[in-house]
Design a protein around this nucleic acid. Structure first.
Lengths: 210, 210, 210, 210
DNA sequence: CATGAATGAGATTTCATTCAT
DNA sequence: GATGAATGAAATCTCATTCAT
């Protein structure tokens, strides 16, 4: 006598999440400014008024979306990196593999996309994202690269800049696909990108060392 | 050559351009949706009515900005690439060097930034950008990589994916700096990025080939 | 006589009254239009739904407040006046003394205050007030003054206008204190006002008759 | 060549005043909260948007009304009182005569009426009114009464309380007429009120001194 | 009786666009 | 050409009222 009655009970607890789901979908499709609260409500299957019952403003929806998405991300993924002391190449391979898998899921991709396009109007979003995600992942990566260089496992490269080389190709792939609709013939091709990226990242494009 | 006449002449002719400059500045600062035509007019030092004399709508300003910026870009840069048959590494070095220099200029960076954040609301912008820039540069790059592989100058890599590795780290660098305010201690550090990027791109991070 | 039962009993019976008390407090503090039914409910310690169980609408609360306050007022006070045939000055003194004592109690003052500020939006309130209070007190007072003039106890004054002189200074005192926060140094100073008012009302400000 | 062209010229300068006139009329009729900005605009013969061109919010209209009304009032009327050193009875007679004349004009009466009914929601209005009008008039009156008492022209009365006796009957008359629709048979009867009030104020209601 | 989640009509406010001058 | 007063459609947000539980 729990599951059954739930159907009849008001779904008060689930509602804010449902509204955020709907808002995310609508915001990503139309952009925050062009999205109407009415549309969000309709997409969530509720009335406009209900949206305002849980969120004090349209902006609060945006904030809510990002906060909710950020909560679990950060520590979870970083734990591994920070205390990893094996071959950095393995760690990077694993990190990028996980990242690729995550970003293949449109639902997971939606939040970063939204942050990207609203960053100009709402710099706090960027700050939040930076604080919760980037400022944790980036130093961990840099440290790992630095250790690899010290170990002699990696060539003497600039750890701070190397992070751009690790993450950039993935970004470019996503951007080309999602923003400019430039996709390989075989679809999203995440595995192909990953294989090529890791190959070039570790061993370079050149046939011979200079 | 009286200053007066020159000013007057140039003004009359250059007005639409000045309006576009103002619009670009305002749009980049506040985002297209949040920018008011009034602000654009004020920034251009003209009246609101005059803006509508030159451009039929607010959207037309956005279009105008992108069109104007795109016109010279494409062919200019690509000419070299398409018919280049020397060492692809030299070509890539040159391309990225030019690109870095361009993007160090905030004025030049503004348009891609604007396109990026308005792409969701105005897919035509993305299409234009793709048609005029990406669809010209990308195949040229791919072809060059393919030739390098065929030549034996490059390792047997996937040309289509390699493009992501060439362009991605630069994108990541710009994104971190411009969107998330993550900058190396020594400022924009474009040269440092370029040096690191080319080094890793060509020779990889690994100490030893597998 | 257990406290518990008493409480429960009284509660069930007294609920509408408690709601009206809460409504009065909230309406006086924020004004009828700005007051939210939710606040009234919270102030009464009940749910919003319950308020609507007792009163069909927000307006009905206002009406209820005024009706409840008016019921006992009128006849009670007037009885004496109408059939009084002693010195009118004594009657006026007594009336004003009682009135002053009543209006010193913020709870008693609340209703007239509310009526006063909502009279524009709800002329029926004014009509009710007039019917139940003013139209009973005023003629009684006028009659008494007329009798006093006829008796020779009062100078030949205009009874209809004299009513304004009797009641006005009290109104002015309340208005200055409650609306404009203009208070003598010694607080509400009702006794001082009453003393001064009666002195001037009966004997005038002038040293000598003309 | 001034008056003629004015018709065709936009009435930009007169507009804010016209809007305030309309707002005052609508606010007094319906009350601030119940009045819709649309109605104000219609009453002013302009569009809703124009109202917001001159006033940033509905509340600003209210403020604007009171500020405009207050500007000329204060000093104008007080000058006379403060430096008057003749018979205080003459001064009071003059003051009340002027006041009565002013308040007979519905347009002049409108602002105090509005302030009265919105005082609860907007205490700043009361503060403004107090600062600009009451705090100037009241001390002047008190001083004059005190001088009269010192002179022997007035009986030994309490100057602070006497102010209530001077102003109150007028207030009561207006309140009865405007709020409760209680009017003598001969209409507004301002002169009758004034005559009766001054008679009682100076010489009292009593036939004989005690 | 009692609750409070849910609704939706309606209000305020914004701003792209027009057009008389 | 140039202005900026004026418009009104459309968006956000509020809150009295309802009703399933």
């Amino acid at each position: 006598m729990g599951e059954d009655t739930k159907k009849f009970r008001r779904r008060a607890e689930a509602r804010p999440d449902e509204v955020l789901d709907a808002a995310l979908a609508v915001f990503v499709e139309k952009g925050f400014a062009a999205a109407k609260v009415d549309e969000v409500a309709r997409a969530a299957g509720v009335s406009k008024g209900l949206v305002y019952l849980y969120f004090p403003s349209k902006e609060a929806l945006l904030e809510g979306i990002v906060k909710r998405a950020l909560a679990p991300v950060a520590d979870h993924a970083v734990e591994g990196l920070a205390h990893f002391d094996g071959d950095p190449r393995e760690a990077i391979t694993m990190l990028l593999t996980i990242l690729c898998r995550q970003l293949s899921d449109p639902a997971k991709l939606a939040v970063p996309k939204l942050v990207l396009s609203e960053v100009v109007r709402f710099p706090e979003l960027a700050a939040m994202y930076r604080r919760e995600v980037l400022d944790k992942v980036r130093p961990a990566l840099e440290g790992m690269v630095a250790r690899g260089v010290a170990n002699g496992q990696l060539r003497p490269i600039d750890p701070e800049m190397a992070v751009r080389s690790i993450i950039g190709p993935l970004m470019a792939h996503i951007a080309m696909s999602e923003l400019f609709d430039i996709r390989p013939d075989d679809g999203l091709a995440m595995e192909r990108l990953l294989k090529s990226h890791l190959d070039i990242l570790f061993y370079g494009m050149s046939e011979a060392r200079p």
